[in-house]
Design a binder for these strands. Structure first.
Lengths: 135, 135
DNA sequence: CATCCCCCCTCCGGCCGCTGGAGGGTCAAG
DNA sequence: CTTGACCCTCCAGCGGCCGGAGGGGGGATG
């Protein structure tokens, strides 16, 4: 099938499919006219990658996952290691976001949000330790 | 003060300070020899930006925040709007990560993680709807 | 046969926020 | 006068695409 069809069926943009080929992730055959010819297996790979990307795996991870999937002699431990590394990233990022939220939300709440210039948000950003010092 | 001092005092890398100048965020004066000369006010701006970046604000947001901070006639509503937009981003990203976690964690848990090839993670990525279909 | 239009191709540049490195100038100390 | 730390500019690259220029392929229509 042509790239447009593969894109539609995988839910990925055409540009992304070309990019995946460029970086050696999923390389379809070619028709005589130079058009990419995605096989059912290629489409399966695309969907696999689309889902892995949806879980936040990097393209490098996706490459590794595709390789493991292809390899009947794989150890599930290798797959699990990738998944756990990804989970660790997710948790690290979640913690970062929690910290941001914890710092920003009270400032936003304290801000009147009217026409006056007084603003706890700007104050908070201007001197992070001032709140403690003023206590 | 020279860029190295400003970097040390702001906690930002030297390269970042040069970058901030390049994109018109914080432009220090220059000594006769071409060296950047950061004033106390520049340093204050740097620290402000460093904190805003720490909360995940984009450089564009930082530019806007600096502008508001500089402007005595500002409305706190404008600052609050930026903060709330940022909070919305944080929450959106948090939700995404939660979804990823919710999808990935059970797969990882179900995976034996041994030398055998059987792997629920690969299965899950290979056919997201299979679990429902098999129920 | 020519025209239309959609799809496909390659290649280049840009996005964000830096980071690394090449290649060179400046300055204080020994 | 040399050393070494610091500073300068400019260019390239990271990840993961996206937009667009400029051109070819292919089927329907006149």
């Amino acid at each position: 099938m042509n790239i447009g069809t593969a894109a539609a069926l995988s839910g990925l943009p055409v540009k992304t499919l070309r990019y995946y080929e460029e970086v050696g992730l999923i390389a379809p055959a070619r028709h005589g006219n130079g058009y990419r010819d995605y096989s059912a297996e290629d489409l399966d790979h695309l969907r696999f990658v689309a889902r892995a990307r949806g879980l936040g795996f990097s393209l490098d991870d996706c490459r590794a996952l595709l390789g493991l999937r292809r390899d009947p002699g794989r150890a599930s431990a290798d797959v699990k290691a990738l998944a756990q590394a990804r989970l660790a990233e997710i948790d690290a990022r979640r913690a970062e976001l929690e910290e941001m939220r914890a710092a920003l939300a009270p400032l936003a709440e304290a801000c009147a949000g009217d026409a006056r210039p007084d603003c706890p948000i700007l104050d908070g950003l201007g001197a992070a330790s001032a709140a403690r010092g003023a206590g």
